[in-house]
């Protein structure tokens, strides 16, 4: 790792679909151990950007640097090998499996070719405890019985357990009620306080200001503003999100 380099850096990344320029020379940096909010209106290119970082789509142009070194993320496995985990809105959990089984899905521990449930349960419990996920009655209950916030917690814990260095969360609170939103935002803060970088993709300004250390705003495929969260206020962010510029801007 190059000293002082951000965890993830995108330089001049573009993505073209036919005649559509979904991303246009985007620069984007994610510092280690901080929460970066990626804001933007619908169609601004937020999803395209995270799919590029998570290895689903290769960029048409530009460079991706991971810990200061140029990387090529061709598949989701490439991204995961570097420690980049993306949690999509559908969470990718199996309803019929319990929490431990979901957290270890695809990474099960075996002993004598049989599943080592004891070891997996201990690790899963420790991970959840470290994240202060306390609302779950039993980690042996099927995911089907969990609330939206709890499911989100399980998805995050799964990423943490697989030693992700960067967790990208796509609209993590979109489907949640007030109390559960608070739970998830708490979880995001805790995650970053443990040293994991988090990118929260959101157009919910309450969430953005509640958790973000850094804010980056996309507008029609261009990165129109980036900076520490305390240099923005709500109105400025709204201006950037809706028109790509802000006359009130103190920063940006």
């Amino acid at each position: 790792m190059t000293e002082g380099a951000p965890l993830l850096e995108l330089r001049g990344v573009s993505k073209v679909f036919g005649a559509v320029r979904a991303l246009d020379g985007v620069d984007f940096t994610v510092p280690a151990g901080k929460v970066t909010a990626l804001a933007g209106d619908n169609g601004a290119g937020k999803s395209v950007l995270i799919k590029t970082v998570s290895g689903l789509w290769a960029p048409t142009d530009g460079q991706i640097l991971w810990e200061g070194e140029p990387v090529h993320l061709h598949t989701p496995n490439d991204a995961e090998a570097h420690g980049i985990t993306t949690i999509y809105q559908d969470l990718a959990l199996c309803d019929n499996l319990d929490i431990v089984q979901n957290m270890f899905l695809g990474h099960e521990r075996v002993r004598h070719r049989l599943l080592d449930e004891s070891s997996m349960e201990k690790t899963a419990r420790k991970t959840l405890d470290d994240l202060h996920v306390t609302t779950i009655r039993s980690i042996r209950q099927p995911v089907q019985s969990l609330s939206g916030g709890q499911r989100q917690s399980v998805a995050v814990a799964k990423a943490v357990m697989q030693s992700a260095k960067l967790v990208i969360m796509d609209e993590p609170t979109a489907a949640l009620g007030v109390a559960q939103t608070i739970q998830v935002l708490e979880l995001i803060k805790r995650l970053s306080s443990q040293g994991t970088a988090v990118v929260v993709v959101s157009h919910n300004l309450n969430d953005v200001f509640a958790v973000a250390d850094q804010i980056s705003i996309l507008y029609l495929g261009r990165m129109v503003a980036s900076g520490p969260a305390d240099e923005f206020d709500r109105q400025v962010v709204v201006d950037y999100m809706t028109s790509g510029e802000s006359t009130r801007a103190a920063a940006g």
Binding site: A92, C94, N96, L97, Q101, L105
Partner: peptide
């Protein structure tokens, strides 16, 4: 079991 519930998650 995982595939039966959600092939995409699997």
């Amino acid at each position: 079991y995982a595939i039966g519930a959600s092939p995409e998650a699997a």
